[in-house]
Simulated scan of single mutants.
Amino acid sequence: MSDLSLDDFLPYRLSIASNAVSDAVASAYRTLFGLRIPEWRLIAVLAEGGNMSQQALCGRTRMDKVTVSRAAIALAERGLITRASNPEDQRSHLLTLTPEGSALYEQVSPKALELERKIFAKFSQAERAQLKAMLYRIEAEVEAIDARG
């Protein structure tokens, strides 16, 4: 029998914590703004990074092509982004926030920061900084493992 205990298995704990946070965020965004998490991620990344291809958004958000495509279509139907042919690659689209999408981002981002404040209210500044640094290290290590194959 394996010594694996899910409650002590760090990838599992990380996944459970991530899902709990995502569920809280999803509930708030769906209720207040009619957004699903993938849609919010695209809006936030486009607000920070400007025009971007769907492929670039996949890399930035770590979401698969189908999820990004569905979110982009939903946002375009709501008039929150535009999808234009990518002059550098005719097989892809460049996504851009519309003025309505930018205005929605300006409404959502304070709510996102408030939710973050509530979740981490009982963490010290040092603990938050340490957690952030550890998350970056985890991401980097996973990327290194993926690169090695």
Score class of each variant (00 low, 15 high):
Glu127Ser: 04
Ala112Lys: 09
Lys132Phe: 14
Glu77Asn: 11
Ala147Ile: 05
Thr67Leu: 09
Val45Gln: 10
Val25Pro: 05
Leu113Arg: 13
Leu94Lys: 13
Leu4Thr: 01
Asp146Ala: 14
Tyr12Asp: 01
Ala44Pro: 00
Ile37Phe: 03
Ala28Met: 11
Glu48Thr: 07
Asp8His: 12
Gly50Glu: 02
Lys65Glu: 13
Gly101Pro: 00
Gly49Lys: 11
Ile73Asn: 12
Gln130Trp: 12
Ser85Ala: 15
Pro38Leu: 01
Asp89Pro: 03
Gln107Trp: 01
Pro38His: 03
Tyr12His: 09
Glu139Pro: 05
Leu10Asp: 11
His93Phe: 15
Lys111Arg: 15
Ala44Ile: 02
Ile119His: 07
Ser22Asp: 11
Ala103Tyr: 06
Leu14Met: 07
Gly101Ala: 04
Ala144Cys: 05
Glu116Val: 06
Ser15Thr: 12
Thr31Glu: 15
Thr98Arg: 10
Asp89Leu: 05
Met134Gln: 15
Leu32Gly: 10
Val45Ser: 08
Glu100Leu: 11
Ala121Pro: 01
Leu97Ile: 05
Pro110Ser: 04
Glu39Met: 01
Ala44Thr: 05
Asn19Trp: 14
Asp8Lys: 11
Ala112Val: 08
Leu113Met: 09
Gly34Thr: 07
Ala133Thr: 12
Ala74Tyr: 04
Ser27Phe: 11
Ile81Tyr: 01
Ala26Asn: 06
Phe120Cys: 03
Trp40Met: 07
Leu131Gly: 10
Ile81Phe: 01
Leu35Ser: 05
Cys58Met: 14
Gln55Ser: 15
Ile43Ala: 02
Pro11Ala: 05
Thr82Ala: 06
Arg30Ser: 15
Cys58Asp: 07
Phe9Ile: 03
Thr96Ser: 12
Lys118Cys: 12
Lys118Ala: 15
Ile81Asp: 01
Val25Met: 13
Asp23Met: 11
Glu116Thr: 09
Asp89Arg: 08
Gln90Tyr: 12
Gly34Ser: 10
Gln90Met: 14
Leu10Ile: 13
Phe9Asn: 08
Ala126Tyr: 02
Trp40Phe: 07
Leu75Ile: 03
